[in-house]
């Protein structure tokens, strides 16, 4: 939540803005509800290893038992504890979102700033690159690349996702940079000899900090969904647990036909809730930063 306040307040006006943002955040139902949902899952993910110590893939319980007081989410066909897998899977989901979304945001922001600020031939080249990566379906690219990796970890998966999902962010930020570029205060900084990177990070970036933060939120949610699809095709982490892998296993071992709903419902509910909360939070933030959208 601290990131909402944007850059460190300098003068009286900025403090007023920070206070205004806080005022509306605390009164926005969308933001509060989605923050609570995210916090609950985050706490579960962090406390997971403490709640269910040991290997989540260990064969510890009865085979294919429905939820009970002992096995909260039941067990798999092989007697693995679904609740333990769920907790560890939540951890990988947040990790993939954070790392994948972070890398994508970093690349997108860099490409967008440079293209939008430099313009000319740099912009042409970067824009062409962006368009090419944009048109190639992310999943197809990820499938060919990851299939040749024998040992895949969650971090490698997140890195690949980050490297392929940045184009739309780059395009949006480029457009924003273009419009800010034409303002007087940017011109003033430029003609007074401020180096490019300081114009970008000192003058342009703070004026779209809310926009950058919202871009990161969307990339975060997108990474989680892409990772889930990749896991489901069988190209997820080779060791460990993830929510997508749980769904893959449940379908691979006919949980559908056997009616073992406790195996595939929780991971999907968690992903839907997390990604949905991120989307709703994005809309809530949009309403705060863009007063025209506020509900009367």
């Amino acid at each position: 939540m601290t990131a909402l306040a944007g850059p460190i307040p300098k003068a009286g006006e900025s403090v007023g803005r920070a206070r205004e943002v806080r005022y509306f955040v605390l009164r926005s139902r969308k933001i509060l509800i989605s923050a609570v949902i995210l916090a609950v899952f985050l706490v579960l993910a962090v406390l997971g290893p403490a709640l269910r110590p040991g290997d989540p893939n260990a064969f510890v319980g009865p085979l294919g038992a429905p939820p009970s007081s002992e096995w909260w989410f039941g067990t798999t066909t092989f007697g693995q504890d679904v609740f333990a897998q769920f907790l560890y899977g939540l951890g990988s989901t947040f990790l993939v979102g954070l790392a994948g979304g972070g890398i994508a945001a970093l690349i997108g922001v860099t490409v967008g700033f440079v293209a939008g600020y430099r313009g000319g031939i740099t912009d042409e080249v970067l824009n062409m690159l962006t368009n090419i990566v944009l048109v190639i379906p992310t999943i197809a690219l990820l499938v060919v690349v990851t299939a040749f990796f024998k040992a895949r970890g969650i971090v490698v998966e997140a890195a690949f996702i980050g490297l392929t999902s940045w184009p739309w962010a780059a395009r949006a930020i480029r457009a924003q940079t273009f419009s800010l570029n034409a303002r007087e205060f940017v011109d003033l900084a430029r003609i007074s000899g401020v180096p490019s990177w300081r114009v970008i990070f000192g003058e342009i970036a703070p004026n779209m900090s809310s926009y950058l933060f919202m871009t990161f939120i969307l990339l975060f949610g997108g990474s989680i969904l892409i990772a889930a699809s990749l896991d489901f095709i069988g190209l997820g982490p080779t060791a460990g647990v993830s929510l997508g892998l749980m769904m893959y296993n449940s379908v691979a071992w006919s949980a559908l036909q056997l009616g073992m709903w406790w195996w595939f419902v929780p991971p999907g509910v968690a992903i839907t809730a997390i990604v949905g909360a991120l989307y709703v939070m994005n809309v809530g933030l949009d309403e705060i930063f863009n007063p025209r959208l506020r509900e009367s």
């Binding site: 949610g221 769904m247 419902v265 991971p267 999907g268 839907t272 990604v275 949905g276």
Partner: peptide, 15 residues
Amino acid sequence: GYILSAAPYMWLAIM
């Protein structure tokens, strides 16, 4: 709409 668009494709298919 938000729930539908946030649901992973395969999970909705599974449901």
